[in-house]
């Protein structure tokens, strides 16, 4: 009933309405001071002048952004050309993240679908199996992956031992190794939203399609996929976004040739070669890109929700 919807529903209730501000104060304080304020401070730093041994000089400057986008020669006196170095690194990050997302989708979608169609009782266990590795330290996972894929590693040993190949396949320090590492890092983010969507999907729609002579794969493409699209998109975003800014997989599995944004940023804050404003600017550009992607995604999701039923 109407009154029930306004008060008795389980989503939000107002039992502790009076204490609300006090209850929220600690989280506001901690997150405001140690997450939000730092991000604002980073924005400020990106517009300051670099100090040669790390840190900044408090003089406003556009040098960081200028360095990112324009090449003015060794002494800064030549006419500005587009600087491709960093744009290429960003582009490579996007490309690598995209490839990792695609790989996660190709493996993750059937997996999520398979799990969601298991008997209800065993589903949580399957989900648990998929998520366990995620909770193992990312560093350890990435190192393990590197160990497995090395030229003299167990995978190549196994393949040579079985006679499938004569000489080791070089996987480490290739783009593919990075994609595999990213896939390994973020796979549950692909599987879980798709799983949730398939679990909510009403399979009598599939039955209706089959009843109307649709072959199974057509049913999957024309009926199931449109219904679970929000879950698929959510999964893609959740893999793509962290992949783009990842540091460990490209650093350990990709080597120097396969530099990504994460390493570029990290380098600016290590040792004496660093350039803090430039690192802050690169971080701001990354953050802006991520927020734009999330914003478009949120728009679409809310549109889908409003127009859905």
């Amino acid at each position: 009933m109407a009154a029930g919807a306004a008060s008795g529903g389980s989503a939000t209730t107002d039992t502790y309405k009076e204490a609300r501000n006090w209850l929220l104060l600690p989280s506001w304080a901690v997150l405001g001071i140690f997450v939000l304020a730092p991000v604002c401070m980073m924005l400020v730093y990106s517009f300051l002048t670099k100090e040669f041994r790390g840190g900044v000089i408090w003089e406003p400057s556009l040098a960081a952004y200028d360095q990112f986008f324009f090449d003015r020669g060794l002494f800064g006196d030549e006419p500005a050309k587009i600087e491709w170095t960093y744009i290429t690194i960003f582009w490579r990050s996007i490309w690598q993240a995209g490839a990792a997302t695609l790989l996660s989708l190709v493996i993750g979608f059937p997996t999520a679908y398979f799990i969601a169609t298991r008997p209800e009782r065993v589903r949580p266990f399957w989900v648990f199996l998929i998520t366990i590795p995620y909770w193992v330290n990312l560093l350890i996972r990435t190192v393990s992956m590197k160990f497995l894929l090395r030229d003299q590693g167990p995978l190549n040993d196994f393949l040579i031992g079985t006679g499938l190949i004569d000489s080791p396949i070089h996987i480490v320090n290739t783009n593919f190794a990075v994609q595999l590492g990213l896939f390994y890092s973020y796979l549950p983010f692909m599987v879980l939203p798709i799983y949730a969507a398939v679990e909510r999907y009403n399979f009598s729609l599939s039955e209706a399609a089959a009843d109307l002579y649709a072959p199974k794969w057509v049913t999957l493409r024309r009926i199931v996929l449109p219904a679970i699209k929000p879950g698929v998109i959510a999964g893609c975003i959740l893999v793509f976004v962290p992949s783009m800014g990842s540091f460990l997989a490209p650093d350990l599995l990709g080597g120097a040739k396969n530099f990504m944004i994460g390493s570029l940023i990290e380098e600016q804050f290590k040792g004496n070669a660093g350039n803090w404003p430039f690192g802050a600017a690169a971080s701001m550009i990354l953050l802006t890109m991520v927020l734009i992607i999330l914003l478009i995604f949120a728009r679409q999701q809310s549109k889908a929700e409003n127009g859905g039923s």
Binding site: M1, A2, A3, G4, S7, G8
Partner: peptide
């Protein structure tokens, strides 16, 4: 019937 306000009054 549901929505008539009876539960609201009780609450």
């Amino acid at each position: 019937p549901s929505g008539c306000g009876k539960t609201t009054l009780l609450r």
